[in-house]
């Protein structure tokens, strides 16, 4: 496997930590109650409306918990230790998980705008982190995994 630049290692690690933090907060609010949710409240932005909607569950599991699980894995996979692993499946898993995360946030954005009618700022934070993480990985993972061949 080809090596990856240091900037990518640290960028993905920091993004994963940010995603883990926000997902952790949303998970706490999910179980502790919306009174702990710090968020503005108007006709467009309304975190409580989103986090207590029917769409806040996926297959019976709170989406916040799914996000926390995803980012728990991503923190490990994107740590310097994770990037240094020689096993190929580690790096494929990282990319696949990030791709699944991107698809999921697109569904959640659609649910917020089209079904719930409100946007949750904390959720949007996770969405942006997920997008940035995947974009960063698209810069390095295909070459690392040899999907595009080595550079001339």
């Amino acid at each position: 496997m080809n090596p990856v630049p240091r900037w990518a290692v640290w960028t993905t690690f920091l993004l994963s930590l940010a995603g883990f933090g926000i997902a952790g907060y949303l998970t706490f609010v999910h179980f502790a109650g919306v009174q702990y949710l710090t968020c503005s409240d108007n006709s467009l932005i309304n975190c409580a409306e989103v986090t207590t909607s029917a769409q806040s569950y996926f297959l019976g599991i709170p989406v916040a918990v799914l996000g926390l699980c995803q980012y728990s894995a991503m923190v490990v996979l994107n740590s310097p230790f994770g990037w240094s692993r020689p096993e190929r499946f580690v790096h494929v898993t990282r990319f696949v998980l990030a791709a699944i995360g991107l698809c999921f946030i697109l569904w959640l954005v659609a649910a917020e705008l089209l079904i719930i009618g409100h946007i949750c700022l904390w959720c949007t934070g996770v969405h942006l982190v997920t997008l940035a993480l995947f974009l960063t990985l698209t810069r390095v993972s295909p070459q690392q995994l040899g999907w595009m061949g080595s550079n001339d």
Partner: peptide, 20 residues
């Protein structure tokens, strides 16, 4: 930078941005 197969290195990134 172009790959041996002729695809630019940032192809995945731009395709992702376009799709999103």
């Amino acid at each position: 930078r172009r790959t041996r197969s002729g695809r630019p290195a940032g192809l995945f990134t731009w395709v992702t941005i376009g799709a999103v």
